[in-house]
């Protein structure tokens, strides 16, 4: 069966060039709970077909932000524009091109997986063959075809997670908001989830995925939004991270050189390397510098010939967690400088 979109239906967005208008614009959003500001002037733009990791500690406001973006909670102030529609002027219209997966799965446990998907399709305004075609498409996307006749309540946790995700995408939303989608999944299911996220983004969907376990998101996210205490602390395109990864080197010694702080840093700087991080406990340094292999070979040779006991010499992959922690450190430094 093939899906043919009806006129006016929610269709997947096309990939857009970088100068295209953003798919999601959040402006100055404030959300208050009694005695507590959950979101404090949060604003950002996200391009279409991107996968953005929404990260932050517990209680940072991630779920509230996702619910505000999903037009489920109305903010006290600010606006959310998705695909040129201010969602709070027409929340019901906005829901037609949005999918949302809450951190609890939200399944009808007494219905079969197939009935769950058909109901979700019907509830999104599809009927007859089209509803069945979309239910089938969604089941195929999440790899749930063999389990369609099983009751939702009898599925394993990972399968229920996938069924809930299939329900959220059954109407092919342009924007998909996922709250902790990979929590509790085994490694194989996480790898499947990673593949699925990439394939949905390849279809043109814009994904925002919240998690406080950054390793889950490292594999497929293209940008990172860091929230802390209801404020946006960092927004970073991870393409830039990938470029930087090749320029990072991790060196571990039997013991750190005595002059690691000053003279050794100067010695490294003279050869085009900058010390980014010093781990005294592990006797390791993280260096940033020339990307080519010749420069690395030269450095290793000189270290050995100058009598340093090098135990480890390897390129270092900067991951999402590094970026997140770095953004927090930068902020704390700024706070310390401007009390």
């Amino acid at each position: 069966m093939t899906y043919q979109a009806r006129p006016g239906d929610a269709r997947p967005a096309k990939r857009v060039s970088n100068d295209a208008p953003p798919m999601i614009c959040v402006r100055q959003v404030i959300y208050d709970y009694p005695g507590h500001r959950a979101l404090d002037g949060v604003g950002f733009d996200l391009p279409a077909a991107s996968i953005t990791a929404l990260v932050g500690p517990n209680g940072a406001g991630k779920t509230t932000l996702l619910r505000v973006m999903a037009a489920l909670e109305e903010p006290m102030y600010g606006s959310v524009v998705i695909d040129d529609l201010d969602i709070w002027t027409a929340p019901r219209q906005a829901h037609r091109f949005m999918g949302y997966l809450p951190d609890h799965f939200g399944l009808y446990r007494e219905l079969s997986a197939w009935q769950c998907l058909c109901h979700a399709a019907h509830a999104h305004g599809m009927d007859g063959d089209m509803a069945e075609a979309m239910a089938l498409w969604a089941a195929k996307q999440v790899g749930l075809l063999p389990q369609l006749e099983i009751l939702a309540g009898a599925l394993s946790r990972g399968q229920r997670q996938r069924l809930a995700l299939a329900q959220a995408i059954v109407h092919r939303p342009k924007v998909l908001l996922l709250d902790e989608p990979a929590s509790g999944l085994d490694p194989e299911a996480r790898a499947d989830m990673s593949r699925l996220m990439k394939s949905l983004a390849a279809e043109g969907m814009t994904l925002v995925i919240s998690s406080h376990i950054l390793a889950e998101l490292d594999d497929y996210c293209t940008a990172m939004l860091a929230l802390e205490q209801g404020k946006l602390r960092a927004y970073q395109q991870l393409d830039a991270l990938e470029e930087r990864q090749t320029r990072l080197l991790r060196l571990r010694f039997s013991a750190l050189p005595d002059d690691a702080d000053d003279a050794f840093s100067g010695w490294l700087a003279a050869r085009g390397w900058r010390v980014v991080e010093t781990d005294r406990q592990a006797a390791a340094l993280l260096l940033e510098g020339a990307a080519d292999a010749d420069a690395q070979k030269r450095l290793l040779r000189e270290l050995v010939t100058t009598g340093h006991d090098v135990l480890e010499f390897a390129e270092h992959a900067r991951n999402l967690q590094d970026a997140y922690l770095e953004s927090l450190q930068d902020r704390r430094k700024n706070q310390a400088q401007c009390p």
């Binding site: 829901h95 939200g106 509830a123």
Partner: peptide, 13 residues
């Protein structure tokens, strides 16, 4: 109680 209310609210119903 089953957490299905959000998806109902986001549906076309």
């Amino acid at each position: 109680s089953d957490g299905t209310w959000d998806s109902q609210r986001m549906s076309n119903l």
